[in-house]
């Protein structure tokens, strides 16, 4: 990899992380999770960018899977809900350009573009969802159903 290409990669990675952190702050994410959100955004880009020549669906699937893996591990470590990291993390993977082209097509009578890009955006979102679901299922299986918190049977609530 040439120096220029490497520099560009670092730039894109930083941009992906920035997008995630920005969304996290706008949605009031806890401060202690912000660096993990950056990591999740980075993972989204790092997993999807190298295989972009494969088209849309495969890179996005892999990106979604990588973000979910980061989010599941971080959520268990930091004791926060998975959504706090997952939602900001997938933001760099959203099909913004396609969705916009589709909307624009509808607004201006370019229905062929609208339908084509709309369907592509749907496929894109679908493979993102599949990536999230795949790793989510594995995480659930690994975690198992934890037993409820132990209590002595028959103890009623303390009354004020």
């Amino acid at each position: 990899m040439s120096a220029a290409a490497l520099l560009a990669s670092v730039g894109y990675a930083a941009a992906a992380a920035t997008t995630s952190v920005a969304f996290a702050v706008l949605r009031n994410a806890p401060r202690r999770t912000l660096w993990v959100c950056a990591l999740a955004g980075l993972a989204a880009w790092a997993a999807s960018a190298p295989i972009q020549y494969l088209g849309e669906t495969a890179p996005v699937f892999l990106g979604g899977a990588a973000v979910t893996a980061v989010a599941e591990v971080a959520a268990a470590r930091l004791r926060v809900p998975v959504l706090t990291v997952l939602a900001p993390g997938i933001l760099p993977l959203t099909p913004g350009l396609l969705a916009y082209h589709s909307i624009l097509g509808l607004a201006t009578g370019g229905y062929d573009v609208a339908v084509r890009d709309g369907i592509l955006a749907l496929f894109w979102a679908g493979s993102l969802a599949a990536g999230i679901a795949a790793v989510g299922l594995v995480a659930r299986a690994l975690r198992g159903r934890r037993p409820a918190a132990p209590t002595e049977t028959g103890v009623s609530a303390d009354r004020p």
Partner: peptide
């Protein structure tokens, strides 16, 4: 097109979509 794409990204319903996927997952 570039400006608009960047301009609307934070308004996209990313959280609702993610939560929807996780709800259906269970």
């Amino acid at each position: 097109v570039m400006v608009v794409t960047g301009g609307i990204v934070l308004l996209l319903p990313g959280l609702a979509l993610t939560a929807a996927v996780r709800d259906m997952l269970t």
